[in-house]
Each structure stands twice: as C-alpha cells, then as structure tokens.
Amino acid sequence: MYMDQLNQAVKGGIAPFHEYLLQGSIVDSSKDVLVHRLRGLCDNADSNPEAFHDHEMIFSLKGSPQQQPMTVYLRHSLIQTDCWHLRYVGSTEFGDKTRQTLVRSCVDIGVSDSIVKFLNEIGFKLEYEFVAKGYFFHKGRMKVTVSKLFKMNIQGDVNNIDPLTLSCLVELSVVVPTGQEQVGEDMKNFAEQLKPLVQLEKVDHRRQQQAAT
C-alpha cells in the first residue's frame, strides 16, 4: 500500500501527505497580543512576522447527484501575484479522544495562472471565494496562520471586500508523510501555550458541513 503510494508519488510528482490540524479564532482586538506571543514562540522571532494576502477560490466538480462533488482549493497570492497554489484535501477524520488533532489527507501543488482556465475547461465550477489577510508563522514543521477572512461583495473583485466576522481564524497545522502520530502531541503542547488567548481545538467538520446544508 505504502509502496504503491510512493511509486505513484514519484511518477506523478505529487506526494500524498497527511495534514494534522487544530483550529480556533481570536477577536480582532486581541489579535496583536496573539501575534506578539506567536512571534515569541515561533522561529525567527527577531524578524517581522510574514504577512500574506490571498484570494482563495473554491472549485468543485459535480458528477452524478449521488456522488460527492470533488472540491479543490485554489489560492492566489495578491502580494506575489505569480504565486498560485492548488490544494486538495480528503475528508476529515475527527477520531476519538486519544487523537489530539484533526487529520486529513492532502495534496499540495504549485500551479501557474492558467489554472483557472484549465479548471473551467475540465468542468470545475467556482463555488465560492474569499480574501484572507494575515500572518504566517512556523515553528519547526508546525505552521500557524492568523487570518482575517473577507467576504467579496462582487465576484472576482478582491478590493471590494467586507470582513466576515469580528474574529480572525487561527490554524495550527503540520503536513507530514503518512503515519506520524507524534505530531499530534507536539501540536497539543503548542496549543496549550496559546491558552487562554486562543482555544485551538478539533473542530468537527462534519457537523459544520451538516449545519451548512
């Protein structure tokens, strides 16, 4: 099984990985405190936190009505406009209490600006889009993002935007090859250090999806 995956990865140039994920949020007024704390906790404490400003588009390909639509997440940096990133994530495993984080399989690929056209050509349709602005930190292989999500008032217009909530989304994630449960423990410990500022938790995605439909 594992060898198959590896062969496939070598052939296709795409490696299947697992993403371990914890999510939380911080109200805007306390965001600076959190950023300050993250600067202290994470690597490169002496340099300014790395900012990002992305436009995310979510495309899906619907097969027959019985089938689950295939969804991909496309991110386009508005700072470095030639940076496009396409990501596919599998369904999220919530797991039991012994598992510290959410786990989902994911595939990350760097793409070029023709991706939108390509996706449209093969039948993908834009589902929704938003703008994410925020900071990015890393500590070892852990990645922390603090992002403010904006609703786009006009489709495709990244300048005409309104904040979605009064909070910023905080995500702690690690992407590793299959089968490294130790990561969850590290992440839990890191999340502990951000309390009580942010409660990073396993957010049940299935429940969220049910609530949305």
Binding site: L149, L164, S167, V203
Partner: peptide, 10 residues
C-alpha cells in the same frame, strides 16, 4: 466565530 470561520472556509 470559530465555527463561522471554519464553516466559511469549508
């Protein structure tokens, strides 16, 4: 807010 943000991205 956490739930709103997560379900927005998902």
């Amino acid at each position: 807010d956490t739930n709103a943000l997560v379900s927005a991205t998902l």
